[in-house]
Design a protein around this nucleic acid. Structure first.
Ligand SMILES: [Mn+2]
Ligand SMILES: [Mn+2]
Ligand SMILES: [Zn+2]
Ligand SMILES: [Zn+2]
Lengths: 138, 138
DNA sequence: TCTGGATATTAGACAAAGTCCAGATTGGCG
DNA sequence: CGCCAATCTGGACTTTGTCTAATATCCAGA
């Protein structure tokens, strides 16, 4: 896996490669996610993007994250009943969730194997398999 | 597994066995969940319990579901970012979620095996493993 | 360079899920 | 009956997310 450095300049190409018109706001939001490689909520993205001076509205943050999702640029992680996390890592992987702190980290899917699942209902296709390990301090 | 019939009368004993003082409202809420053996949101519980005549407040529904959760009488299922489902089935099992319809069903854990998980971070203990298969119409 | 239309952004109203609190009800017990 | 603790309640409040109508930006063609 190449460890690349995500600059704002890189973001335009990344967005274009996902069929997304790179605007200033979209570049900032992508940069927030990809430069950190962390799971962020919409609120966190909003805060990061507007650190220096307010420049992106709430509506745009939500619109943009939804667009990224549709275009497959990011993935949604549903572990906390109160907010959705957006994940710049779209390769198949699982999650470890520390319920006390709210910390969410990746588990590489490569060595994890899930077997014995029953056949899917007829006419259904898998959209994704979410495996979440919920942990807390012993 | 004994297939038992969950009557309102049974509920009092079930609640007591989980160290919950059986009040009228608690019995109604438990009955809603256990007689159906379905995954219900707080809103759905509220609607069911208040079908005949309004008798249980929103605050009590939420308080009671949280109490049931703490006492291990029900389990929480987080699959839909907009609402939590409460699950009267506390035996280890997984879930199949139909994203279009919102239908949520159980997958018996007995034959499912998950292997190759990395060791937990030091000082952490597993609180639960959630496996969710998200499916949609082909 | 100017102009029109498509695309994108915005403020702020709105909705839904869930929390919180202070006051009322209940129910068991002396 | 009257007391006390536990429980329940309406309704205000918070948070996350959606929607809309108005504005801003971008760019292709004249
Ligand atoms: Mn900027
Ligand atoms: Mn009743
Ligand atoms: Zn992840
Ligand atoms: Zn279940």
């Amino acid at each position: 896996m190449t460890r690349m450095h995500y600059t704002r300049d890189n973001m335009a190409g990344l967005l274009r490669s996902h069929d997304i018109n790179p605007t200033h706001q979209r570049i900032e939001i992508a940069h927030a996610l990809f430069s950190r490689q962390e799971h962020l909520s919409a609120d966190q993205v909003m805060a990061i993007v507007n650190t220096r001076h307010s420049e992106t509205s709430k509506a745009t943050v939500y619109n943009t994250l939804k667009l990224f999702l549709e275009k497959g640029l990011v993935r949604e992680v549903i572990v906390d009943p109160s907010k959705v996390f957006f994940d710049p890592n779209t390769s198949p992987h699982h999650h470890l969730y520390e319920v006390d702190s709210g910390k969410l980290s990746d588990i590489d899917a490569e060595h994890v194997q899930i077997s014995g699942l029953p056949p899917l209902p007829a006419g259904m296709v898998t959209e994704g398999i979410d495996l979440i390990i919920r942990v807390r301090k012993a």
